[in-house]
Amino acid sequence: MSRRSVEVTTDLVLRAYRHGLFPMAEGRAGDKLFWLDPIKRGILPLDEFHLSRRLLRTVLSDLYTVTADRNFAGTIAGCATLVPDRADTWINPQIERLFTALFRMGHAHSVETWQDGTLVGGLYGVALGGAFFGESMFSFARDASKVALVHLVARLRLGDFRLLDTQFVTSHLAQFGAAEIPREVYKQLLADAVDHPAVWLTDPDPDMLAAEFRRLAGRTAD
C-alpha cells in the first residue's frame, strides 16, 4: 500500500512555524521539501544586537537606500542565486512559490538594499505575532545584507517583536550576537512570542529609525 504525501500549503507552513518547524529543499533542483526541528536553534536576541560604529556610519550614509516589502520576489530570487562560494541553495521553486504566497497574505516580509536603483542585497522571513523567522539573505555589494539586517532589527524592536529566529548560527550572524539555544528553550520563547501582538513597520518614521540605529550602536563596544 503506497503512502500518500501531504501537500505543503501556506496554512501548513504557518502551523509548522508556530510549532518550531521550518521547511527546506535538498537543493535548487530538488523537488521535495523536508521539515527541520534542530536540537540547537539559532536566535538573534533583539536586546543584545551588536552594531559596530563602522557599520552604523554605513547605515546612516547615503551609500544605500533601504526599503521593506518593495520587491519580495526579487529578494527571494537574490537569496536563491548561486554565487562562487555557494554551489547550491535550499531555495527551490516550490519554496519561492510558497513564500511569495505568504507575502501576498501579509505573513512574509522582505528588506531590500538598493544602490543606484539596483537591488544589491536583502533578506526575507515570516512574521507570526511577535516572532520573526529569518529565512535567508543575500549580498551583491559590500555590507548590503548587513545593512538590511540592521534595518530589520530596528523595525522589529520598534514594532515590539520579541523573537528573531535565525534557524542556525553562521559566522556572519555570530558577529551580531546570534547564539544557539536548546530546542526546549527555543520553543518556550516561541510560544510566548507568537501570541504577543506586534506590528511590522514597512515605512517607519526615518527619524525613529535613525534613533534606533544609534541606540543599537550605543550598546556595542567596538
Rank of each mutant, 00 (worst) to 15 (best):
S2V: 12
R4K: 12
E7G: 10
V13M: 02
L14H: 09
Y17K: 11
F22E: 00
F22H: 06
M24G: 06
E26R: 07
R28Q: 08
A29K: 14
G30E: 00
G30W: 01
L33A: 13
F34L: 09
F34H: 10
K40T: 14
L44T: 04
L46Y: 03
L46P: 05
E48W: 04
H50Y: 01
R54T: 13
R54P: 00
T58A: 02
V59P: 02
S61F: 05
V66T: 09
T67V: 04
T67H: 06
A68Q: 09
T75E: 09
T75V: 15
I76A: 06
I76H: 06
I76D: 00
A77I: 14
G78Y: 00
T81S: 12
L82P: 03
V83A: 12
A87G: 15
W90D: 09
I95S: 10
A101N: 07
L102K: 13
R104Y: 15
M105T: 03
M105A: 13
E112V: 03
T118Y: 09
A127H: 14
G129P: 02
G130R: 05
G130Q: 01
F133I: 00
F138T: 11
A148P: 10
A148R: 12
H151S: 04
L152F: 04
V153Y: 06
A154N: 14
A154H: 11
A154I: 12
R155W: 04
F161M: 11
F161R: 00
R162S: 05
T166W: 08
F168M: 08
V169W: 05
F176I: 04
A179Q: 14
E180Q: 13
W200D: 05
L201N: 08
T202G: 01
F213A: 10
R215D: 03
D222C: 01
D222I: 01
D222K: 01
D222F: 10
